[in-house]
Write a protein that binds this DNA or RNA. Structure first.
Lengths: 228, 228
DNA sequence: CGCTGATTTGACGGTATTCAAGGTAGGTGG
DNA sequence: CCACCTACCTTGAATACCGTCAAATCAGCG
């Protein structure tokens, strides 16, 4: 269960404001969004929405990192996507969630009940427009990932993921935002295979690991080549 | 290149009307949609949108079956989704398409240039609402497929696909809407593996093949079991 | 009938998983 | 400070699964 805390800095002072869904809202819609949502925090590992449960909450991420996951009965798990600062989570206009939403790092969100959000969206066409743009982007991303899952080899998958990490990180020293297990769950591989492919990339001098949680791209063309 | 033909039965007589995006439009929006779109036909194998090309056209499918595909440089291909009667295709609010759209069966569509459609959508909030609902559904479907591609075995994938086919087909005698190669491209497998898994299901008496293009589910619990 | 394209089947090999052991880092308490 | 614990990561060996290559069969069609 998400724990509810007082959360002094609301939208006006929100760090995620520039990238958030709400940034595309008019002042009126922003004010209304601010009014209907409430702030929550999630601890690392805490789950906000469970797969196959009724979707009760939707909202915007102020800070932190969440994963969307689907699982099979025997425990196999696939990460379907990550959501960070400014991303919208939850499934409006539907009853059940087809995935779980869990915090990978402590997170703060502004959330609201699904049906209240739906009324809000109905009242502000610009909100639905902003949601549509995000949904279409997410759909493109999910589909690009389907190509990786369906057709790329383990080596290509790991190289592709490192390139994604690099694209989201400014410097030359890049932090893994995920553990090896989480990388494996995102890539549809086992943790051992991810580890072995990282070792291969190190030996090929395409990357180097400064410590276990940071890497540097030593030969970008080679890495891109391996990503196919 | 899509060939433009006169297409007498417009929206009012369209067979796809009941399931189509346009069915959610108001009479005014419907009339406007009818006015701005033009009918086209696609022959089997004809491609309407190419991966990485500028998206020029969007539209609604009146009849036929299309595939959305992404490819790697060496020719490996993944089917990202299928679109049939009533589905919306194309990527509004973006410049490049991240996938190709190709007809698997002769198709008729009502299409319009992307920017003209965007103006239309901006004028009718209900249109954006309808698009949003479809985009969210597509996103759920894409994500469920990611679980299959990332975590299911070949046997589980084939069984899952047969269950999907059955769900879309009314009778007990179910037609494969795809060739084995297309099934393989959808499942992230090779054609040989698909064929072998079908043989296994036959020998296990979970299904039977009447001819190469039709099957019957003989033991649904067993089939669901194998789909995991 | 003989072509063409799709499907099935077989033999083999490679890639990724499984199972198992060992290593590393960070935190806690003695 | 150091021993210990836990969680995370790496490496090795054996296996299983799926892909590759090749050939045979089948169906549709001119």
């Amino acid at each position: 269960m998400p724990s509810v805390l007082p959360f002094p800095p609301r939208c006006s002072g929100c760090a995620a404001r520039s990238r958030a869904v709400c940034s595309a809202f008019s002042p009126e819609a922003s004010a209304e969004f601010d009014r209907i949502t409430r702030p929550i925090t999630l601890a690392r590992g805490e789950t906000m929405v469970w797969e196959d449960d009724e979707t009760l909450l939707v909202g915007s991420i102020a800070s932190g990192l969440l994963k969307l996951t689907a699982s099979l009965a025997d425990g196999r798990e696939q990460i379907l996507g990550l959501a960070g600062e400014g991303d919208f989570v939850g499934r409006p206009f539907g009853t059940r969630s087809s995935y779980s939403v869990t915090a990978l790092a402590p997170a703060r969100l502004c959330v609201v009940g699904r049906s209240a959000f739906e009324s809000f969206a109905a009242a502000f066409p610009e909100v639905e427009h902003a949601l549509l743009l995000r949904a279409l982007d997410e759909l493109d991303r999910a589909r690009r990932w389907m190509l990786l899952l369906g057709r790329k080899s383990a080596g290509e998958r790991v190289a592709s993921l490192l390139i994604e990490f690099a694209a989201r990180s400014p410097g030359t020293e890049i932090a893994f935002p995920l553990t090896r297990q989480q990388m494996a769950d995102l890539l549809g591989l086992t943790i051992e295979t991810v580890s072995r492919e990282l070792t291969k990339l190190r030996h090929a001098e395409a990357i180097s690991l400064t410590d276990l949680r940071h890497f540097r791209i030593e030969d970008e063309p080679a890495l891109r080549q391996r990503a196919a």
